[in-house]
């Protein structure tokens, strides 16, 4: 359900961009999703296959989904670490004064058009 909302939001924007650029069709779309974004890649792909049929320019579009790994930063020892593996606790110094640096983004990277 959540993925569907995001997918529709993306296909709507791509349709607009395709129209503005006067292209015939969009051949591929590259999307980057962070490992700890709220997007489950498999659901996202399924939603995209369904949503693209309802678009003007993306009916034959191929989706390239790139998953970016999540990194956190520790304010106490100033080091970064893998968020999925260690969560909120820094593996170097056990501090919990940490925050996510990358990994929660959902980004439209590029499209190939014809």
């Amino acid at each position: 359900m959540h993925e569907l909302g995001i997918v529709f939001n993306i296909t709507k924007q791509i349709d607009e961009i395709a129209k503005e650029n006067k292209v015939n069709k969009v051949i591929s779309l590259t999307v980057e999703v962070g490992e700890v974004s709220t997007v489950v890649p498999e659901y996202f792909k399924d939603c995209f296959e369904w949503a693209k049929k309802k678009t003007e320019y993306l009916k034959g579009c191929k989706l390239n989904l790139v998953v970016l790994s999540a990194l956190s930063y520790c304010e106490d020892c100033k080091q970064t670490y893998n968020t999925v593996q260690f969560g909120k606790t820094c593996p170097h110094c056990k501090s919990e004064h940490t925050y996510l640096v990358t990994g929660n983004e959902v980004k439209m990277k590029q499209i190939e058009v014809e």
């Binding site: 939001n9 961009i17 959902v106 980004k107 439209m108 990277k109 499209i111 190939e112």
Partner: peptide
């Protein structure tokens, strides 16, 4: 068949809503 070109987007999927 037309020519294939790439359009770089580099923007958050939520940018339009924001």
């Amino acid at each position: 068949m037309g020519q294939v070109r790439t359009i770089l987007l580099e923007r958050s999927a939520f940018a339009n809503n924001d």
